[in-house]
Write a protein that binds this DNA or RNA. Structure first.
Lengths: 246, 246
DNA sequence: CAAGGATAGTATCCTAGAGATACTAACTGG
DNA sequence: CCAGTTAGTATCTCTAGGATACTATCCTTG
């Protein structure tokens, strides 16, 4: 635990305070800045979490934020870890790996529903914050009894995580379209109609058949959840095949 | 094929020219703008594809671009479709669905390698451009003989596509870290060391065990390809389970 | 063959964000 | 009480996206 080797950004992520009692006492700290930014993103989307707006929310000038976060990109990393939060205690229990991994995926989906902007955030690398690590750890723990090697476990955890993120992104994409008078049904109908006009059955036989089918007309609000389950079970089936092989 | 109902942005995506011979003839067209933007993104990343820079590359003022693309966001959509290009002819052949879907995924991975910035582009909805539709169509065609219903086929195609994108994103994230003198091995070693210092085996037993293992030290340049195959086969196993059920 | 309408491209403005620099303010320990 | 240390401020620059009002160039029609 030699913390001297840890770079500054990681120290901030893990909230390792230098504990210096010198100089002017701070009104702000990393947590306050990040919380304010997360609150803004929750309310008005990721684009609203700008340095000027965060500063205004904290009643402070923009530049003072740089005392605590280093850069906008670093703020984004901090925001992700903070918004994720720790994995819920309900994942602690024991049980068959499939149930546990399913629960893990659903818990992550719940987080993404609470903070929709998390989905659009660029992934800059492997998890490195305390909460990111905690989720990662929980995912690995679900696979503990499977006999998979480390590489496979990592692959499985990232695959499931990717799936959850992709599904959330898709759900959000479908849910967008309201806002300027068009409700979701109208948006989808207009998409379907335009596609029907553009997709030539000669060039794109299968796609045209899809758009010709009733698939894009009967999508109610519950479909998202149903589709999510379907894909998740598919992924879990794939994991099961790997587990049986090991 | 009533093209009157198609909104302007879709008309531009599909290159449906209004064919008006009136007025001053254009030096530019949608294709030229998009190609220039793609070239910039290929060379210097997505952030380099700004309206001023595209305009400079075309020796034209920034504002003239708005005659052809409508907005920056629309340009991004156009760029995606253009960069994807049509799916390769090699996917046309027939064969068992698993081989075909695998080939489809690999072809898509190749596109993402050629245009790395595609990975980071926000997904704004279902595919709507000609190339996006063509890829989608090819994916559906690979599943034609599986007996899956439309909803399942769509889910499978999107799942595989998501997987490819996620894997590419991960590969890029790992490949970043060079640039300021640190080569990849050094970056990974430094990441591993910092994590080893921060991840408390008491709080995060499985993650700590992972970082303690040799997993993060033995990753050569070929590992990406290997991991990609592993995850892809996993996904295909899941699809196989769904196909057998149908 | 000249208007005049239609379209392409330009010049100039504004807003907003990220960040650099140089400053002032507040505290603490010698 | 003062010198060093740290927190927050004021002001400036650069870059980007976009709005508006203009000029340039061409085709068509009278």
């Amino acid at each position: 635990m030699d913390e001297a080797e840890v770079p500054v950004e990681l120290a901030r992520l893990w909230r390792i305070a230098p504990e210096s009692r010198l100089g002017r006492p701070a009104r702000l700290d990393v947590g306050a800045v990040v919380d304010a930014a997360v609150a803004l993103a929750d309310r008005d989307g990721l684009a609203a979490a700008t340095l000027p707006k965060v500063a205004e929310a904290l009643e402070v000038t923009k530049m003072s934020l740089y005392r605590h976060v280093g850069s906008k990109d670093e703020l984004l990393v901090l925001m992700r870890d903070a918004a994720q939060g720790p994995p819920p205690a309900s994942l602690e229990g024991t049980g068959p790996w499939r149930e546990r991994l399913r629960g893990w995926a659903e818990a992550q989906a719940a987080v993404l529903e609470r903070h929709p902007w998390l989905v659009r955030m660029p992934v800059t690398g492997p998890p490195s914050g305390p909460n990111g690590i905690a989720w990662f750890d929980a995912g690995l723990r679900a696979l503990r009894e499977t006999g998979l090697d480390w590489g496979a476990k990592v692959g499985v955890v990232m695959l499931v995580s990717q799936y959850v993120g992709g599904a959330a992104e898709l759900a959000q994409g479908l849910a967008a379209g309201r806002g300027t008078g068009l409700d979701q049904a109208a948006a989808e109908q207009s998409y379907g109609r335009a596609m029907a006009a553009l997709v030539d059955p000669g060039r794109f036989p299968d796609a045209a058949a899809l758009f010709g089918s009733a698939t894009f007309e009967a999508t109610g609000p519950d479909t998202g959840g149903h589709d999510f389950r379907f894909g998740l079970e598919l992924v879990l089936d794939g994991v099961a095949a790997a587990v049986e092989r090991a």
